[in-house]
Design a protein around this nucleic acid. Structure first.
Lengths: 224, 224
DNA sequence: CCAAAAGTGTTGGTTTTACACCCATGG
DNA sequence: CCATGGGTGTAAAACCAACACTTTTGG
């Protein structure tokens, strides 16, 4: 093995919202090391594959979805992080909108959604990776538009507020939240409403990507 | 070569301030590929070395300094980014305080400081790395205390303002800047003054790390 | 007394926070 | 008519941006 030659894996922190709670997808390892322990989904980077491509491929393999929000997080390179030998982990985080239906095989005994703020012990240094992803997600939520990635295309303002609350872990004032979001002018109010039970139907909105650049100009998009 | 085995390099964007202008250290490559072209300092990660340790080692080799601000930036893994074969680049950025004296050998024909916003063509994908580092530095400057890393321990408010102006690339209002910085309560005013020419001597300040946690609590420290 | 940079306050506009009630709907 | 979540405004405080003159020093 020549100088600097190591194996490179991608590990993905896949977030979604279920019943208003932020969840993360974990896989139960079938082989040592850490057999039967929960771990982040991931795998080795192939020969001629970019890191992003490897992350997308793993994501597709685990969940059956493509075309999702995916962003590189951090690279973990402690020589002892994997007992099998030197494995570099390039971590990513992904956001799945809650409407997405995942391949069967997700959410079985060996692949389950866990509340992100209440995950079990994890293999390797995956706890560190998860914590890092949570920090990043919280910050990006407030400074970028990633929040929308956790929702279906059409959503109500209350649903959007629930996303913010689930990620930030605190309650927000309904009036202030709405004022702030609407002032950004990044939502398109639709003529549709959603009947969601016995109460007054809520207006639906869409994220309006055409004004994305507006925000960038105002320094509101965080370029990481 | 087993699946996923690649060589791993660290490349470091080393910033400093010279005469009020943000500079970056570049190395002229002595061997192919890109012989005689300017490139970011860097090198391969050793067998049993963490990524951070590799970056620190390279930094020390190039500049002779240790104990500097260093932070991982991003990992670039395009399979074609290095014509010699697959080389993953873990990029870092470092901030050197302007008082630091560097090893001789820095700032020679083969290692030179260039204005960061006016660097020559770079080898590999190093231009992308540099651009990324500049974006990151600008953001961190406004949301964290990294700005102090570019200054000596004791500095005047005007010097601090020059750092902000050099990085952000725009003029700031002296009164507003001072008010804002002082309100953070992260500076300790010293009893010393600096005589810097014919004019009125300026009060010296130190960064007061003991109040760092205050800022964190107020969400003012950006955790990347 | 001149040149040079240090130092210092006010005002108007915008943003943020805290806070409570009526509305539309289905059962 | 009741239960449920949808929807709306206002006032006080904090924050931000624009703006100009006096002070201290050395020569």
């Amino acid at each position: 093995m020549s100088r600097g030659a190591v194996r490179v894996a991608v590990d993905i922190v896949i977030f979604t919202l279920r019943e208003g709670v932020l969840h993360v997808l974990l896989i139960r390892r079938g082989v040592p090391p850490f057999k039967d322990k929960w771990a982040l989904p991931g795998g080795f980077v192939e020969e001629a594959e970019s890191l992003d491509a490897a992350a997308l491929r793993e994501l597709e393999e685990e969940t059956g979805v493509s075309d999702v929000y995916l962003e590189q997080l951090y690279s973990f390179g402690d020589p002892k992080r994997d007992p099998r030998g030197r494995v570099l982990s390039i971590s990513y985080f992904a956001l799945l909108s809650s409407e997405r239906e995942l391949r069967s095989g997700t959410d079985t005994a060996d692949a389950r959604w866990f509340p992100a703020y209440d995950a079990p012990r994890l293999a390797f240094d995956h706890r560190k990776i998860l914590d890092y992803a949570l920090v990043r997600l919280r910050y990006k939520l407030e400074w970028t538009t990633v929040g929308f990635e956790l929702l279906p295309k059409k959503f109500t303002l209350t649903e959007l507020q629930r996303v913010f609350e689930a990620v930030l872990g605190r309650q927000l004032d309904k009036r202030n939240f709405r004022r702030k979001i609407l002032k950004l002018e990044i939502l398109r109010a639709l003529d549709e409403r959603r009947r969601a039970g016995v109460q007054r139907p809520a207006r639906l909105y869409m994220f309006s990507a055409t004004v994305f650049e507006k925000l960038r100009g105002r320094g509101m998009i965080f370029p990481f």
